[in-house]
Amino acid sequence: MSAIFSIEDMCVSYGREKIIHGVSLSIGAGELCALLGLNGSGKTTILHAACGFLPMTGVCTAAGQDCSGLNEKKRARLISFIPQVCSMRGGITVMEAVLMGFNAHLGLFGSPSRAQKQFALDTLERLGYASFKGRDFGTLSQGQKQIVLLARCLVQNAPVMLMDEPDNALDFLNRHMVLQKIREVLRTQQKAGLITLHDPNFAMNYCDRLLLLKSGYLVGEIKMKGASREELEKKLSLIYGAIEVFSFNGNFFMGQVQETETSPLFTKLC
């Protein structure tokens, strides 16, 4: 699988404090990779540096182009991004919010064309949100907002999609729906996806590869295709400590090993 997105020897510092220490990774077409790690391990920092929000050393390449010298517009044509928290407020419709995704493909004074508006509507339709197009963005729940952000990211139509906990604030069903849609889009449109997730169970079941991050270092990598329960348990315990991995119907689940008064050792499902 040829790499569409790659990072080589990325280092990021906040002032004098080094946060990311020489991280390298590459993602192929149609592949969804999860960045897993505890809070403060540097997951969001890696995404922000790759998007050009933070200064970094090393090389970041998307669709064969070195992103370091690119301005915001050129970079946005290669990399789209879903933030953890959306800064968009009310006062605009869902359709207007989605149309913002076309900005990288429009001139400074341009407006979305009829065909682009239809594409935006089709994208909302694919996500099951076509009926929301006239709704005020501010009236949506946090989960619904995340789905609109996903639609905005999809109309941006960049070969690389970076997603910072897009399932943040989604309910159980919507979380499955969003991750399924993301995987489907990446596969059908042959895009590369890098997603940060807090729940390893969702990562194991929806992602092709897991990248394990601890204190700014990439400490392991798991290819889900052909991965054994033992391998998962061994590698995931590098960042999560005492854990146990189960297999059920071909899917993996992780639980935390805990000691209590009644049961000296039991596994609590995450």
């Binding site: 998007c51 050009g52 929000f53 970079r75 946005a76 933030p83 968009m88 913002m100």
Partner: peptide
Amino acid sequence: QLMGLSDNECRALGVRL
């Protein structure tokens, strides 16, 4: 209108901030 978003979101959408 796009400038009403956070700086990072503007950049991600390709606004030459």
